[in-house]
Nucleic acid binder design. Structure first.
Ligand SMILES: [Mn+2]
Ligand SMILES: [Mn+2]
Ligand SMILES: [Zn+2]
Ligand SMILES: [Zn+2]
Lengths: 143, 143
DNA sequence: TTTGCAAGTGCAATTCATTTGCATCTGCGC
DNA sequence: GCGCAGATGCAAATGAATTGCACTTGCAAA
């Protein structure tokens, strides 16, 4: 079986000794079901639809805790605020549509491999990396 | 001739219609001679060694102006503040030593090419990109 | 060379994302 | 059920970056 069903974020939190409080339960659920890369304000508003009392400071603190435990990824695209996603099944990088802000995921094994190769020639081990490609829909070339 | 000596930053500013004021002259000189990727505070302190009256708001404003005119690149590595460098002769990406914060430049034509290729398959034109690879000196593997 | 004025600057105040101090609350191991 | 370390709410603080405003200055035109 290629994909034994992945442990839920909540389960993975418990395993790390993090308490599952009411705010966290909701935050984790929101992260798990998000199909995009929400910022803290967006997370907060999604959380409040389910659990209105949750404070935005709690969302900030939870993002830090989850990131420290390696359960979510923090991105900083060119728009000031940090954006988050649950650590994906398998690594990917991002296109950002500069006209709309839309984020599109992609993966290139070839790029990943060459990064390793280059790092090795420099005597480095890779800890992490980020490749953000800012794009716009292809224009027919009017020459 | 491969490398006609490149126009100085100051010349390129003039050509864009930007005024060469005393603060700018110094800021441009500092950028031109920097061998690293200084943040605004660092730029400001280098500038003040030459021209003590320059205000940090002027450094911020000048970074914005120069970036808008495509004369410098703004980076945001994992340490909160923006870092700058004069637009390089030819594009490169960066390793960041996570232990020391040191930034090392590299270039991979292969990675650049594959990015273009992938973008094309998604129907995008690339506007810009950034590849930051966080690394540490290679550890002999103790298994 | 002088002049006019838009662009640039210094300074202080402001903005905005994020963090933090503190009193209170609560998950969860015993 | 108890105890308490960890988590939360709230308000205040932080820190990078921006901005309003009065004053200065580069530089094109005269
Ligand atoms: Mn993603
Ligand atoms: Mn560089
Ligand atoms: Zn990648
Ligand atoms: Zn590149």
């Amino acid at each position: 079986m290629k994909h034994p069903v992945r442990k839920t974020l909540t389960e993975r939190c418990k395993r790390k000794g993090l308490r599952i409080t009411a705010p966290r339960r909701v935050i984790l659920q929101v992260l798990e079901t998000a199909q995009d890369h929400p910022d803290v304000d967006e997370l907060h508003s999604r959380v409040r639809e389910i659990e209105p009392g949750v404070n935005i400071a709690t969302v900030y603190r939870t993002m830090n805790t989850l990131a420290e435990h390696g359960l979510i990824e923090r991105h900083s695209f060119s728009d000031g605020r940090a954006r988050y996603e649950a650590v994906p099944e398998s690594h990917h990088d991002h296109f950002i549509n500069v006209d709309t802000g839309e984020v599109i995921e992609f993966r290139s094994d070839e790029i990943e491999r060459i990064q390793e190769e280059i790092a090795r020639t420099y005597g480095f081990d890779i800890v992490s990396h980020r490749l953000d490609i800012y794009v716009r829909p292809r224009q027919p070339d009017d020459d």
